[in-house]
């Protein structure tokens, strides 16, 4: 019979655990890219919107935003969209589907520790989000001549905070969605409504009633924070601390909900 010390010695090996996480990340990535619908919905949509909107009215200028072009407005916007769709919509649907089909429960009963699974899901989601942002920036630069951000460090911070917050939101909302059938509609409607109100498709005046409402939610702030490192308007800092702070608060709040409410097993009929 094994002693507790022996059991602990066997389970506590950091290098082994990291290998386990990377092993799972590999399969999370495979699952994402093999499942073409998911890949198209996240990667494809942000690119499609950017290309369509850019082709429609991309070179017009926006007088309320110091005459930046629409394209300059859309590029950070759809970079933010990419982060949110990967971390929030995609992740929530993915988790609900895996939970309700028993896949999460099955993994829970394998030797893969819960934290390692969640870390792998998080890393994999972050890879998708960052690759989305990269694709949008490159298309913006090559297709529409939109300059890369002038402050890469600030962009990196926005990505770190944004990905952490929206991943937490994705996990939190997945824990309150009852079944697979409602996962898609619930997350998509919530997401698109907030995107609309937060001024992704058209700029909203910062002092309007709509802006006051939108400012309560993190979507508005991620759009603002993502635009800041491009420093399109004179005198605007690349570091949107206020926006990042609010995003962070949402992240912590949703993280707590996620920890409390997370379920491994399907709801029984």
């Amino acid at each position: 019979m094994k002693t507790i010390e022996a059991i602990e010695a066997e389970t506590k090996s950091v290098a082994k655990d990291l290998r386990l996480v990377l092993h799972q990340v590999k399969y999370e990535q495979m699952a994402f890219w093999v499942n073409k619908t998911g890949a198209i919905f996240t990667l494809g949509f942000s690119v499609l919107f950017l290309v369509l909107l850019g082709a429609t009215n991309g070179s017009q200028t926006i007088s309320s935003l110091h005459n930046i072009t629409n394209n300059q407005f859309y590029v950070p916007g759809f970079a933010a969209y990419g982060v949110m769709s990967a971390c929030f919509t995609m992740l929530a649907i993915n988790l609900v589907t895996r939970r309700e089909t028993g896949l999460l429960k099955r993994l829970r009963l394998s030797p893969l520790p819960a934290w390692a699974l969640l870390a792998a899901i998080y890393i994999s989601t972050a890879i998708v989000a960052v690759s989305q942002v990269a694709v949008i920036l490159i298309i913006g630069r090559i297709g529409y001549g939109v300059q890369f951000p002038s402050n890469w460090l600030a962009l990196a911070l926005v990505l770190i905070v944004g990905i952490a917050c929206f991943t937490a939101m994705g996990v939190a909302i997945s824990s309150v969605i009852p079944n697979q059938e409602t996962a898609g509609p619930v997350t998509s409607i919530a997401f698109f409504l907030l995107l609309f109100l937060s001024g992704l498709w058209f700029p909203i005046a910062p002092t309007s009633g709509l802006a006051t409402f939108s400012k309560f939610f993190p979507v508005y702030h991620l759009l603002q924070a993502m635009a800041a490192p491009f420093q399109l308007q004179p005198g605007v800092s690349a570091w949107a601390w206020g926006d990042l702070g609010i995003i962070g608060i949402w992240g912590v709040g949703c993280g707590l909900i996620a920890l409390r409410r997370f379920r491994w097993s399907p709801r029984r009929g």
């Binding site: 094994k2 059991i7 066997e10 389970t11 399969y27 495979m30 699952a31 093999v34 499942n35 089909t101 028993g102 896949l103 429960k105 099955r106 009963l109 394998s110 030797p111 399907p266």
Partner: peptide, 19 residues
């Protein structure tokens, strides 16, 4: 420790379909 030594087949079949 236990989970490396037991095998589990649940009542609900659960295998990723796209692998």
């Amino acid at each position: 420790w236990l989970r490396t030594r037991i095998g589990v087949v649940l009542q609900e079949m659960a295998v990723e379909s796209f692998f």
